[in-house]
């Protein structure tokens, strides 16, 4: 089975070891939930998976092929939802969405409508971004997932600010995505309804990083 894998990953940010010795594997249709306290490296790991940053050591692979060898193919399958919503205040909801859908290939009104419907944004389609509430902006960000299909969803705290109805939309969208063979990696503090998801607790790897740092510090260099 083709796996999205990470092996022995070490992440260093701003000169500090965030985690060390971390590995994971997600199969087609699978889901991985990252848990851990603030600062344990959930967002850093998602950024490594997306290719926004490079691991200090270790590697990521997709179906056995190193991702570093073909970053463009990886970018074509990654859909990343970060903390920021990427909503332009002076563009309307549908203009915002159609721009992002267009960045992943030709996108017509159908794709935009599919995205809007998945997160119940049809009634807001003509409104400018500046009048949206925080929750509505976040739904618009999530709508990118439905408007431009990609194999690997990387979601950083996707449920923050969502009401119950929107959380259900998200659950449904993830279920449909996984049903079609897609994979999801989500970092979250609130429990999400993801049947059969694996859980990766980051704390031990963060502790391993501290240990590695302490070891380096003890080593006499001069």
């Amino acid at each position: 089975m083709s796996l999205f894998e990470g092996r022995n990953l070490i992440c260093i940010r701003g000169g500090r070891h965030v985690f060390a010795g971390l590995g994971f594997a997600v199969s087609a249709g699978g889901a991985l939930v990252l848990v851990g306290p603030n600062g344990s490296g959930k967002s850093s790991l998602l950024r490594l998976m997306a290719g926004l940053s490079r691991p200090a050591s270790g590697g990521l692979s997709w179906a056995g092929a190193e991702i570093a060898g073909d970053p463009e193919a990886h970018r074509a399958r990654v859909r990343y939802i970060g903390h920021l919503d990427c909503v332009k205040a002076v563009l309307s909801v549908s203009e915002n969405l159609s721009f992002w859908a267009g960045q992943y290939g030709p996108a017509g009104p159908d794709e935009v409508r599919r995205g809007l419907e998945a997160f119940a944004l049809e009634n807001l389609a003509g409104l400018p971004g500046q009048v949206l509430s925080a929750g509505q902006r976040h739904r618009l960000a999530l709508a990118r997932l439905a408007a431009s299909p990609g194999e690997l969803w990387l979601l950083d705290e996707p449920t923050v600010g969502l009401d119950t109805a929107a959380q259900e939309h998200l659950t449904a969208a993830i279920a449909a995505h996984r049903g079609a063979g897609g994979r999801v990696v989500a970092a979250t503090h609130t429990p999400m309804d993801l049947p059969g998801a694996q859980t990766l607790t980051l704390e031990p790897f963060a502790l391993a990083a501290r240990a590695a740092e302490a070891e380096l510090d003890a080593e006499p260099a001069w």
Partner: peptide, 16 residues
């Protein structure tokens, strides 16, 4: 770890 192994050697060499 490569980040620090090199600097250690560098420091010894530069001292000489």
């Amino acid at each position: 770890m490569h980040r620090f192994a090199n600097p250690g050697r560098f420091l010894r060499l530069s001292n000489i």
